[in-house]
Design a protein around this nucleic acid. Structure first.
Length: 604
DNA sequence: CATTCCCGCCAAGTC
DNA sequence: GACTTGGCGGGAATG
């Protein structure tokens, strides 16, 4: 029967008609599959075969091997079982709107019955719209967002982590009746949020919303690292992002864009982002300095992403009062607990009961030589550079251990060695002449050993080394080193994650020893030292447990840059959950664990 | 006309 | 070298 259908399908297939249409049409004609079993798609059946064949061979392109089941019926069934909200509303409206191409509107009695049974979705159509007999799919019905909803409807929001769901892009494409190209778009943004994960060519794993919270938190932190919040607040302030600048060329992918877009929301004070701003920021980042056509393209892509995010219920479109610019508002969670789970994912806006959290949140330090100004506030508005007594009395009350540091003065380039007793942290250096520096601390495991002699840096000891040589790889940074005269801290930002402990990226799996971490809270004592003249900063925190958070090192001379360049230990995050080394050779793509080697500790 | 954004060409990337 | 991915922008649909 399958073959018969396929054959007749061929006949029917006019180039313009979508697979879905054909199927719908055809289904009505041919003998329908009556039993529920028959309707259940193979998709459902081979779900659990994750381990089975990763070498799955992609079916040849559009071989006429269309699946016998009805996509719509399939969808409908799944949807009813799958996640709730938006779906019902939007879905019913148009999702299952079969497209009629049939001229013979004289249904035989049993055809009617079939329609009722199998494709009663047809009914929506008939009811909703009055007189559309001869209509083509209409643009809206083919939107990425809608398509994404269909996609989502195929799988559970919170699948059992124990039994991963394997996805074949082919099957999805076929099942949804669209060309592959479209699936790529969707999958890319889904991947950027870890709703799916790439396994191999054509195969993905479905995580659903299981990891969404942790992922969003990660993105939020990265957003801060990148200073996105600053950029958004003062859109006049030109804040080029070093970090993203052309390190790896795949930075333009929809996946990355999507992440950045999301970061903007998560970091935005108002949680609203206009496409205009987003596009500009994103353009700024791609160091391939191109012009206006880039903007147009960027916006197009943002629309694509926005549509998908909308269908995920993460954002909604709003009109910005000023100037009527298209804008989107974040609907998802913005507060997370420190293990990365959204604080009440389902209704994020609600509880902000984070008071108990002992971890710091987003403090902002301003550091002038040998003095520290601590400001505890969420929105780290650039604070005055004057000294204030460090206020140790108040414990930071928020949950993500983030702090931003800014040197008050310009400094020269130099080397920074950071040692922490945590087992990992991230570090952000910002500003041109290294005159400012930001740290993002993630609570890790309790200190193993402290006061390590420079020469014998344990490999496992988390640290970051930022040799000036490495910095010069970054055009912007290098450039800014020249302008010695300028007073204005330009706030270039550039981030260097420390050794990310693998656990850190095993999202969800309760990696850090949270207990310990929250006990110590984040209260390290650290100091920062550059090699050259200037600046030496200190910051103390109250934790008695962590006497040395950071040890200044004997610096190299900034001059002999080339020598140290090669052994520069340097990492930048690529896509989420990955660490991409700047060494091109180390790049790798598509592995399940996108993780690259950790740099070697420098030998003194 | 402006805003959205689908479509599908075709060039990179992979295997 | 075939096949998979996905950048990209024309131009159609929609507002």
């Amino acid at each position: 029967q399958m073959e018969v259908e396929c054959l007749s399908l061929k006949d029917l297939t006019s180039p313009r008609k979508s697979f879905m249409e054909n199927i719908c049409t055809e289904r009505r004609r041919s003998t329908p599959l009556k039993s529920a079993e028959s309707i259940i798609p193979a998709l459902l059946i081979n779900r659990n075969g994750v381990t089975a064949d990763l070498t799955h061979i992609t079916p040849i392109k559009h071989t006429a091997l269309a699946e016998p089941w009805t996509p719509t019926a399939n969808l409908k069934m799944l949807i009813s079982a799958a996640s709730p909200d938006i779906r019902d509303r939007e879905m019913k409206k148009m999702l299952f709107r079969p497209i009629e191409n049939e001229k013979d509107k004289t249904p035989s009695p049993d055809t009617v019955v079939e329609n009722m049974e199998v494709e009663d979705s047809c009914q929506f159509e008939a009811v909703d719209e009055e007189d559309d007999v001869e209509k083509k799919p209409s643009r809206k019905q083919k939107s990425l967002g809608l398509l994404c909803q269909k996609f989502l409807a195929l799988y559970p929001d919170y699948p059992d982590p124990q039994s991963p769901i394997w996805i074949s892009l082919d099957e999805v494409a076929t099942s949804l009746g669209v060309e592959r190209r479209r699936i790529y778009d969707i999958v890319n943004v889904l991947e950027s949020l870890m709703i799916v994960g790439r396994i191999a060519k054509n195969s993905y794993t479905w995580y659903g919303r299981q990891r969404l919270g942790p992922t969003l938190e990660e993105l939020q932190q990265r957003g801060w690292q990148q200073g996105y919040h600053l950029q958004m607040e003062f859109d006049t302030l030109y804040v080029p992002m070093m970090f993203a600048a052309g390190v790896n060329r795949r930075d333009k992918s929809l996946r990355i864009m999507s992440q950045k877009f999301v970061m903007l929301f998560l970091v935005s004070k108002t949680q609203t982002v206009t496409l205009d701003v987003a596009a500009k920021i994103l353009i700024e980042e791609s160091h391939d300095s191109s012009s206006h056509s880039k903007y147009k393209t960027k916006v197009r892509r943002l629309y694509d992403i926005a549509n998908i995010l909308t269908s995920l219920g993460l954002i909604k479109k709003v009109r910005e009062e000023r100037g009527r610019k298209p804008a989107f508002k974040w609907l998802g969670p913005v507060k997370f607990n420190n293990s990365g789970n959204a604080v009440s994912i389902s209704n994020s806006m609600a509880g902000q009961d984070l008071r108990k959290s002992k971890l710091a949140r987003h403090a902002s330090f301003n550091i002038t030589p040998t003095s520290v100004v601590v400001k505890r506030q969420i929105s780290s508005a650039p604070s005055s550079l004057q000294n204030q007594p460090v206020d140790y009395s108040r414990k930071p009350t928020n949950n993500s251990a983030v702090c931003r540091l800014q040197f008050g003065n310009r400094t020269d380039s130099g080397e920074f060695y950071f040692f922490t007793s945590f087992n990992h942290y991230k570090c952000v250096l910002s500003s041109p002449g290294l005159n400012s520096l930001g740290l993002l601390l993630s609570a890790g495991q309790p200190p193993a050993s402290l006061a390590v002699p420079p020469s014998s840096v344990p490999t496992l000891l988390p640290y970051v080394l930022v040799p000036s040589a490495a910095l010069s790889h970054y055009p912007l940074m290098a450039g800014s080193l020249q302008q010695q005269g300028s007073d204005t801290p330009t706030n270039l930002s550039f981030s260097v994650p420390a050794v990310m402990s693998p656990v850190h990226f095993t999202m969800g799996a309760a990696p850090y020893s949270l207990t310990a971490a929250s006990e110590i809270s984040w209260s390290p004592h650290f100091s920062i030292l550059t090699n050259s003249n200037m600046m030496q900063c200190e910051c103390f925190c109250e934790s008695p447990d962590l006497p040395h958070f950071l040890l200044p090192q004997t610096p190299h001379t900034p001059k002999d840059s080339t020598a140290s360049a090669s052994k520069a230990f340097f990492q930048t995050p690529g896509t989420l959950g990955s660490v991409v080394s700047s060494a091109p050779a180390a790049r790798k793509r598509g592995s399940a664990q996108r993780r690259l080697d950790v740099g070697h500790p420098p030998t003194s």
